[in-house]
């Protein structure tokens, strides 16, 4: 009975995993398609065009470049801001703690469409032009909370005695932070930064509210293409993203499991 039960869970888990991965397989397969007509829905014939000329579709690489730039900038700023907040929450006792927690939680509990539209009303009222700058502001805003959560989880597991030990051994507060606290919090900070990058890179709804015709991000390009017909290059880029994500996540796993093995 227990045997059947255990394997039932495994089968269910396997089926769900398939469900989650099938679209990625389709994306990879269809990046080698030479579509008949403008919609890339049916596999017509094998072609490597998407891979040999990835910028073959008009505007695709420009939008990709813009998304990368926005993603890197937004995740960097959000990581700095979020890490500072996480340290304040994890290391200090201060007035207004619960208000801070609420303010961090709220952006995660607000639908994107509300955040995007409300920012639009603010920018309209202040006369802030839409475009890359507005998109950056928005992305940093919704990424900060996720960074805080990721870093705070890590900071909470840090042993405060390690910092005491550093002070005891003659490290001043700055050296203690640089040589002990920061390296130990690094996995959390890295996870937060990665999460922020992927959220920024992937965002369509909020971006769309704050974009101008000259600031077409990659998700906006894909959205526009979904109505006109999706070029195969989109599938190739999607596949590359999946592979890059796979490599990054595997590296993260290896690093963290090595760390865990040492602890065990």
């Amino acid at each position: 009975m227990a045997w059947i039960r255990r394997h039932l869970v495994a089968f269910a888990a396997f089926a769900v995993l398939i469900y989650m991965l099938v679209p990625n397989v389709i994306v990879a397969a269809f990046s080698f398609n030479n579509p008949r007509g403008k919609y890339n829905y049916v596999f017509n014939e094998f072609s490597t065009e998407a891979w040999t000329s990835p910028c073959g579709a008009q505007g695709i690489c420009e939008s990709l470049g813009l998304s990368l730039r926005i993603g890197v900038t937004a995740s960097l700023v959000a990581t700095v801001l979020g890490t500072m907040i996480a340290f304040a929450l994890g290391r200090y006792r201060f007035r207004g703690r619960s208000a801070t927690n609420l303010l961090i939680f709220m952006p995660m509990a607000t639908p994107e469409v509300v955040m995007g539209s409300s920012l639009l009303t603010l920018f309209l009222m202040l006369g802030v032009p839409s475009g890359t700058g507005a998109i950056l502001i928005a992305h940093i805003m919704f990424c900060v909370s996720f960074v805080v959560v990721a870093v705070k989880a890590r900071v909470a597991t840090l042993d405060p005695r390690l910092e005491e030990a550093a002070a005891d051994l003659g490290a001043n507060p700055f050296q203690t932070f640089l040589r002990v606290t920061l390296p130990l919090a690094a996995p959390g900070i890295a996870a937060g930064a990665l999460l922020a990058f992927s959220l920024s890179f992937d965002d369509y709804i909020i971006t769309n509210f704050n974009a101008s015709p000259s600031s077409i991000t990659f998700p906006m390009y894909v959205w526009g293409a979904s109505a006109r017909g999706v070029p195969v290059q989109v599938y190739a880029i999607g596949t590359v993203m999946f592979l890059v994500a796979l490599v990054v996540v595997i590296i993260g796993q290896v690093l963290s499991s090595r760390r865990n093995r040492q602890v065990a």
């Binding site: 390690l162 030990a165 550093a166 005891d168 051994l169 507060p173 050296q175 002990v180 390296p183 130990l184």
Partner: peptide, 20 residues
């Protein structure tokens, strides 16, 4: 004086060795 300025060192309970 602060901890880092004192010529006093501690062997901590459960050691507090830097894991990294």
């Amino acid at each position: 004086t602060k901890a880092y300025q004192r010529n006093v060192n501690t062997v901590f309970q459960s050691y507090a060795l830097f894991p990294h």
